[in-house]
């Protein structure tokens, strides 16, 4: 595997090929996962780290599709990646009512299993796999979620 310092940062790549825009539908989750994998492979991340980032972005987009956009695919989600020597960052922008994953309490998993609960595991997964999750309401109707993985 080449040294990461020899690889061009994604942010210095030409054009807008560091981002994709998808219609807000679960059928497009595969496209988002493929995009993240392709970019993460370009900078030489290992497969376990790549899977953790892919899962976190999948969970974030799934929540937006389900809860913010109510499966209405006239809405869109923009996913943009960038990297530095020591971190890989994914920025997700979407319109509609935003939510801050940091405000969601992580469940006690012993109690969760004891009571046969269902659902609510996407955000705990994002929190376990990423080093930082930042939510910003950046315009009257635009939300920004930044997922950061330290490398």
């Amino acid at each position: 595997m080449p040294s990461r310092s020899l690889i061009l940062p994604i942010s210095e790549m030409k054009d807008d090929n560091n981002k994709i825009l998808i219609k807000s539908s679960t059928k497009n989750l595969a496209e988002v996962r493929n995009f993240i994998e392709e970019k993460a492979l370009l900078i030489g991340l290992d497969s376990q780290v790549i899977n953790q980032i892919i899962l976190s972005v999948d969970e974030a987009c799934t929540n937006i599709i389900k809860y913010t956009h109510n499966y209405n695919d006239t809405n869109t989600i923009e996913v943009k990646v960038s990297d530095t020597d020591n971190q890989f960052q994914v920025e997700i922008k979407y319109k509609g009512e935003g939510f801050d994953p940091n405000k969601v309490k992580t469940p006690d998993m012993v109690e969760y299993f004891k009571n046969y609960k269902v659902g609510g595991l996407g955000i705990p997964m994002m929190k376990k796999f990423m080093n930082k999750i930042e939510y910003n309401h950046i315009k009257p109707d635009l939300n920004q979620l930044i997922l950061t993985k330290s490398l």
Partner: peptide, 16 residues
């Protein structure tokens, strides 16, 4: 090849 929390949720929904 891949499972997200939606997949985990299916097993939780039927195990009991």
């Amino acid at each position: 090849s891949y499972i997200s929390s939606a997949g985990l949720g299916v097993f939780m929904a039927y195990i009991e």
